[in-house]
Simulated assay, not measured.
Amino acid sequence: MAIFPAAGNTQISSFIPEVWAALLMAPLHEELVLGSDLCTNRDYEGDIAGPGDQVHINSLVRPAVVGYTRNADVLPELLDTDRQTLAIDHGKAFAFILDDVDAVQQAQAGTDKPHPIYAATLESMQALKVAADSYVGTKMVAGALADNKKIFKATGSSPGDPFNALVDYGVVLDNADVPVKGRFAVVRPEVKALILKHDKFIASSYGSAEPIQNGVIGSLAGFTVAVTPHMPTGVNMIVGSPIATTYGDQLSKLEAIRHPTKFGDVVRGLHVAGAKVIRPEALIIASES
């Protein structure tokens, strides 16, 4: 038990020196969820080099199907395409400096733990993931059809039933001819709690040695369910197929240089990305209100 001297009777010997731990406590890591292959496609990632780039997407307009009678002519139609543009409008950067003195002190600690530059770079990359997930979610909300924006309450005295909601959302996707394979439902943690308590929920890895990837927790009503706390404000569920949203990104710069006026190393990186809802009928947004 620590005994502190009475006020006004402080002796130098009573001060406890500060001790700096050699091992850095890193922030909790995040997985890419909304920007993962579970929720998006990377069909047009192409030649992204930096912010401001544009990727032009030509989608085929479905040819008309006409009635046929014996000996009648079937007139061909010209194939047509519908052009969309994927703008690379997301750019996030990081830069930090490690003073040579701090680097030496870490080396003198004699640990076999990762070097601070390596650890800080990894944590910066994790921050880029969080920013990218939030960016994709915002694009999904903006690009969804007005009729596909639903209300699902996750809080309050009468939260919704996630199974019934997903069944209804499945009907919307069925009527839009959205493929059944690969359908997902990304939810915020409050909805995850409702799903985990549901008797129809099928867990993906509970009791298994297989790790949970990209926030996936299991399946419900034919949807692969994943969770992230980085949903757009007020949105409880983003439901659909990866064909709805295309996403492309690049870590366009990652470099280490000596600081021009300080004794230390500078590490900096630039991440650029673009996301666009190209098939809005394959996406449903469920919000609190």
Rank of each mutant, 00 (worst) to 15 (best):
S158Q: 13
A154E: 14
L34R: 10
L270K: 07
F96L: 12
R279V: 01
V266Y: 01
Y169I: 09
A176Y: 05
D37C: 02
P229K: 07
H90Y: 12
D82T: 06
S14E: 04
L220W: 06
G269V: 05
S219W: 06
T233Q: 10
I238G: 09
W20E: 09
I48D: 05
V66T: 15
I202P: 00
P5M: 00
I16L: 05
A127D: 12
V55S: 03
V266F: 01
S287K: 10
T155Q: 15
K113M: 07
I151K: 15
A209M: 09
V101W: 00
G218P: 02
D133R: 11
G170N: 14
I284E: 12
C39I: 05
G234N: 06
P76R: 07
G46V: 05
F263G: 00
T138E: 15
A49L: 10
P260I: 01
S241L: 03
I117F: 14
V187M: 09
L75D: 13
Y169K: 06
A95G: 14
E190L: 08
V272I: 06
H56W: 01
D82L: 05
N58H: 02
P76W: 07
V104F: 04
K181C: 02
L98M: 08
V186W: 12
V171C: 03
Q126K: 12
T138F: 10
E77A: 15
I88P: 11
D73C: 00
L38C: 05
A119N: 04
A209Y: 05
D112W: 03
I238L: 14
K197W: 06
E18W: 06
Q250P: 02
D168C: 04
G46W: 02
A93E: 11
A275Y: 02
K262E: 11
V66F: 13
V171M: 03
D37T: 13
A275K: 07
Q250S: 15
L24R: 14
A256L: 07
L194M: 14
Q105S: 05
A2I: 08
R183E: 00
H29Y: 04
K262H: 07
V186N: 12
S287W: 00
Y44F: 12
L34V: 04
G137W: 13
T10Y: 07
S208Q: 14
A6L: 08
K276C: 00
P280M: 01
G218S: 08
P5E: 04
V172K: 03
N164A: 15
L194K: 11
P260K: 10
N58M: 01
L28F: 05
I3K: 10
Q84I: 00
P27T: 02
A131N: 12
V277M: 08
A87V: 07
H115Q: 10
A142K: 14
Y118M: 14
V104Y: 06
L32D: 08
D147W: 02
K153I: 04
G50S: 08
F163Q: 09
H198V: 01
S219R: 14
D43Y: 01
T69S: 13
L28W: 03
A185F: 05
D133C: 09
I284F: 09
